[in-house]
Amino acid sequence: MPAVEPLLVLILMLNFLLLGTSRLRTAINTSAFQGAVLGGLTVLVHGGFAVRPILVGLATIAIKGVLIPLMLHRALRDAAIRREIEPYVSSVVSLLLGAVATGASVLYADRLPLAPQHRGSLLVPAALATVLVGFLILTSRRKAITQVVGYLVLENGIFMMGLTLHDAMPYLVEIGVLLDLLVAIFVIGIVMNHINREFASLDVTHLEQLKEE
């Protein structure tokens, strides 16, 4: 499937955009776009235009590309913040770490024995790289919303890994995973709301009361 590889390259490029940006709005929109690309990828990987792949693809776009970003934008508006000021790791360093993570994923995937249909494809390395980039964003940012974006990117990587198994995974599981994600973001949104009300900020540096003395 020739169209799959360009989409994978696009996803990898979006990873770097996410690592480089300091604007929260851009971060949310980029993760939304990445989610929508995954929807397209789902249809292509499942090999064509049957009813069920298209339904799963549409559900992916609806949840990852529309619903979750809308929730995050609402949280952003309520909290009235725009920028990720002073992340724990500067954006240049995050970009460098992202490049290292991507390179390492390609090397590691090369060492793993791949099934014949995935040899020479970027699917497995791109999935691993996206997981690592998500983890990087999650751990290096201060704002609760950016941490959630990191979690979403991590989930996107895992979703791509799931695509390698489209024969094995019944659609029920894919849909279950998507719904779980939606509910997770919903619950996280409620807790963010509590944080915002209690501390008048979505900065997680306020959350440092609990530790060993």
Binding site: Q147, Y151, I158, M161, G162, L165, I188, I195, L207
Partner: peptide, 27 residues
């Protein structure tokens, strides 16, 4: 609230990794 936030975030990452591991096993 702080405890819940940490629990949710760490728990969500843990559970995401568990899914990744499950997919590796299936692979």
């Amino acid at each position: 609230i702080e405890a819940t936030w940490k629990y949710l975030l760490i728990g969500a990452v843990g559970i995401a990794l568990a899914l990744l591991g499950t997919l590796f096993l299936a692979y």
